[in-house]
């Protein structure tokens, strides 16, 4: 980095010396801006943490949460704010991978709720969070469009759909989909995964895209989480995946090490794990954290 900067500074001096024409001057300014920014913005470290000891009153809480938690967490947020008057709760809902990238690049948040243990593992490994705890599980299901509901009644019928939409293997739902298809191949015939994949017309980047395409009737069927399916029950039919094949997603939650509001952050974690929080999660379609069939 140092070597590059020196290089740029030298270029800038050369430019200064014979900056006679407008074009040269513009070039110089551009380079100066680059040098300044190169030193300033690009290498900016996250702002120093506010010491929790010197901030006795916490009045805000920022929660980064996976998109699939939107309905449940938004509802729970109202309850939390009533229990903590004067506290302003802000959610940032996005794909787990996006949230992880934002956190790695210095986004300031207090709590991270991931839809994937792997991503949480990376965040903990980078010392951005500690002591994650699984607070919910989510079960993949098949959603079927109105037009195909008659022909597609069980999981074994899946290859009969002509337009299937699943998640891309880079996102958790896509990974779980391939895992459960592999497991199903063991008992439904070795070619099951291949027969299903032959009908795949799109590998979507997130669960909601899968759901949208099925609920608009554009695709015959897709695989999404139970909680997503629950938001579209008027437009899609749900076919449960037999538990012996299914791969259940585990959702971990952790307070971030750079949390500006650690006390409220811990209060949120406790609230999510409390019976009130758990009841709200159950209502949205999540499974209880403890149980069998955990994802590998």
């Amino acid at each position: 980095m140092r070597k590059r900067s020196t290089n740029r500074v030298r270029k800038r001096r050369d430019g200064d010396r014979d900056a006679t024409t407008g074009r040269r001057a513009a070039y110089t300014v551009a380079l100066t801006a680059l040098v300044l920014c190169g030193l300033g913005c690009v290498d900016a470290e996250p702002a120093p943490l506010r010491s929790s000891a010197s901030a006795p009153r916490e009045d805000a809480l920022v929660v980064f949460a996976a998109t699939s938690l939107r309905e449940a967490f938004t509802g729970m947020g109202g309850t939390f704010e009533r229990d903590h008057p004067g506290v302003e709760l802000t959610f940032n809902f996005a794909g787990t991978q996006q949230l992880r990238t934002q956190l790695e690049h210095g986004a300031s948040a207090d709590v991270f709720a991931s839809a994937d243990r792997r991503q949480m593992g990376e965040v903990v490994q980078a010392a951005l969070a500690s002591a994650p705890v699984v607070f919910a599980r989510n079960e993949p299901v098949v959603v079927v469009s109105r037009e195909s509901a008659g022909a597609l009644r069980t999981f074994a019928d899946l290859p009969s759909a002509t337009r299937l939409v699943i998640g891309t293997p880079e996102v958790p739902i896509g990974r779980y989909t391939l895992q459960l298809l592999d497991r199903a191949s063991a008992s439904l015939g070795a070619g099951f995964r291949a027969r299903v994949e032959a009908q795949v017309v799109s590998r979507e980047l997130d669960v909601r895209q899968v759901l949208t395409k099925v609920s608009l009737g554009e695709a015959d069927a897709g695989i999404v989480y139970r909680t997503d399916a629950n938001t579209a029950l008027d437009r899609v039919t749900v076919v449960t995946i037999p538990p012996e094949f299914n791969v259940i997603a585990e959702y971990p939650l952790a307070v971030l090490t750079s949390a500006a509001h650690p006390r409220l952050a811990h209060a949120w974690v406790d609230f999510v794990l409390s019976s009130v929080g758990q009841q709200a999660l159950r209502h949205a379609g999540f499974l209880a954290p403890a149980g069998t069939g955990a994802a590998p």
């Binding site: 407008g22 001057a25 300014v29 551009a30 801006a33 680059l34 920014c37 190169g38 913005c41 690009v42």
Partner: peptide, 18 residues
Amino acid sequence: EHATLVVVGGLLVGFLVV
């Protein structure tokens, strides 16, 4: 005056190019 215009323009160049 010329330099002022160049500097102001340069800010945008920096913002777009960085």
